[in-house]
């Protein structure tokens, strides 16, 4: 079985978000770029499956749509344990553009399972996975919180509101994964970092696709009024404020 993980290159989760050029561009000064946290968990789970002899995974590939500056992030995925990588050489314009590029790059490669993280922590679109599945005419399962191989069959937990469903599905399919898929992201060891340098990273030129959306301007959240402090000895005051002022109870 061959597994593909779609990687998004995002600012570290603690980054202080700022914009330049009249709030039209994300300010990249001093930003640390990382693998999108969910994609990292997806990769971790794929590697766990590869180590499980019963799961019969021969290869884990990662793909990213990005310019050369995303290569450190891709190398990190190789260092964590992916076997090879593909970079589609283009600036990601929107989810449709990214999904189109990935669809084109992998359409003849026969991946059995394609995994996307539920959203990327920059544009919070939750879109590339579903779009890619539709473009490739593949079944998809979203909100996946566990994936196992049992006697050769794929068994998936899907979160539903207030519970979960256990599903079985045949390959090929696409999974959009979220919390639970792996416990802790795997960290690259020294040996992995050394090996990553030699692992294949194929660069594919982008196809001509128009984005369907345009980001026109960013806004920072409105500065909020300072927190109203209530004395711990007068908890009833809080009840009154919530009832009469905030009107939420």
């Amino acid at each position: 079985m061959k597994i593909l993980i779609c990687l998004s290159n995002v600012p570290d989760t603690t980054t202080k978000i700022k914009f330049t050029d009249d709030n039209t561009k994300f300010d990249e000064t001093g930003v640390q770029w990382v693998i999108n946290p969910w994609d990292e968990l997806a990769l971790t789970r794929a590697l766990e499956l590869k180590e499980d002899a019963g799961a019969n995974v021969e290869k884990v590939t990662v793909i990213n749509v990005g310019l050369a500056n995303t290569e450190p992030t891709i190398r990190k995925a190789l260092a964590i344990g992916a076997d090879d990588a593909i970079r589609v050489n283009a600036e990601p314009k929107d989810a449709f553009f990214v999904a189109s590029q990935i669809a084109n790059a992998i359409k003849d490669q026969g991946f059995d399972i394609i995994i996307n993280g539920i959203e990327s922590s920059d544009f919070n679109g939750s879109a590339v996975g579903g779009m890619l599945a539709e473009m490739l005419d593949l079944p998809s399962v979203s909100a996946v919180s566990a994936m196992k191989v049992e006697n050769g069959a794929i068994v998936i937990d899907r979160e539903i509101d207030g519970g979960k469903e256990v599903l079985s599905i045949e390959t090929p399919f696409l999974a959009v994964v979220q919390k639970g898929i792996a416990l802790e992201p795997r960290i690259a060891a020294m040996r992995g970092i050394m090996m990553a340098r030699k692992k294949p990273l194929t660069i594919i030129e982008a196809v001509d696709v128009q984005a369907m959306t345009d980001f026109v301007a960013y806004e920072m959240p409105q500065p909020k009024p300072p927190c109203k402090m209530v004395d711990a000895d007068n908890v009833k005051d809080l009840v009154n404020l919530l009832h009469n002022e905030a009107k939420v109870i």
Binding site: D94, F96, S126, G130, M131, A133, I160
Partner: peptide, 22 residues
């Protein structure tokens, strides 16, 4: 939500529509 995130991107591609998520 879970269902909307599962379906909206697929529907968008099927209908040649741009997606505004969230």
């Amino acid at each position: 939500n879970n269902m909307g995130k599962a379906l909206a991107p697929r529907v968008a591609v099927k209908m040649n529509a741009g997606l505004g998520a969230g």
